[in-house]
């Protein structure tokens, strides 16, 4: 459990870095590392498929997309971030962490929960027999994403 806690702490630290770092490329890499750590956390929670997906798809594919976009859009124009936010928001975040640490355990004790039997079978069975509709949804959302990208990068033949 100690190792898991340490991994989670690293995950949060990397995520904060991904938001706070000035350089876009570095923050994309921090995001990828955060995904990698999250994948390992998933793996250790007994969810190897989620872990593999997190590492290959989020840490891999999404990072590639981010870096591609950063390369395509960079041209020396810097976005000036708000100075005030840079001072205020870390303070707010630390305050939130403190509150979070204080109340989360007690809050969870208040959540009533039904005791239910565990599940049987393998991941494949659960996915195919239990949540097949989600697979239809996945196909639909992939179609939506593909058509969206095609539409946004289409050649405008007449207009303009």
């Amino acid at each position: 459990m100690i190792l898991q806690t340490a991994l989670l702490a690293v995950l949060v630290a990397l995520s904060v870095l991904a938001i706070a770092l000035k350089d876009l490329l570095r923050s994309a890499i921090a995001l990828a590392l955060a995904s990698l750590v999250l994948g390992i956390v998933f793996f250790r929670m007994g969810a190897p498929y989620a872990g593999v997906f997190e590492i290959s798809v989020v840490a891999g594919l999404i990072t590639v997309l981010f870096i591609l976009t950063i390369a395509l859009t960079k041209s020396g124009d810097e976005v000036r971030e708000s100075k005030l936010a840079n001072i205020v928001f870390p303070v707010v975040f630390v305050a939130f962490l403190a509150i979070d640490a204080l109340v989360m355990k007690r809050l969870m004790g208040k959540v009533p929960a039904l005791a239910r039997g565990g599940e049987a079978g393998t991941f494949g069975e659960v996915l195919w027999k239990g949540r097949t509709l989600d697979l239809v949804g996945q196909i639909a959302v992939i179609l939506a994403g593909v058509f969206a990208v095609l539409a946004l990068f289409r050649q405008r033949d007449k207009h303009e």
Partner: peptide, 26 residues
């Protein structure tokens, strides 16, 4: 103790995330 179902949900969630990020980056 429903890790398998939760795993299926997370996989779906990740797929949705990818298509969302691709759209947003475009």
């Amino acid at each position: 103790a429903h890790i398998l179902t939760a795993q299926a949900l997370v996989v779906t969630y990740i797929v949705i995330e990818v298509s969302l990020v691709a759209t947003a980056l475009a």
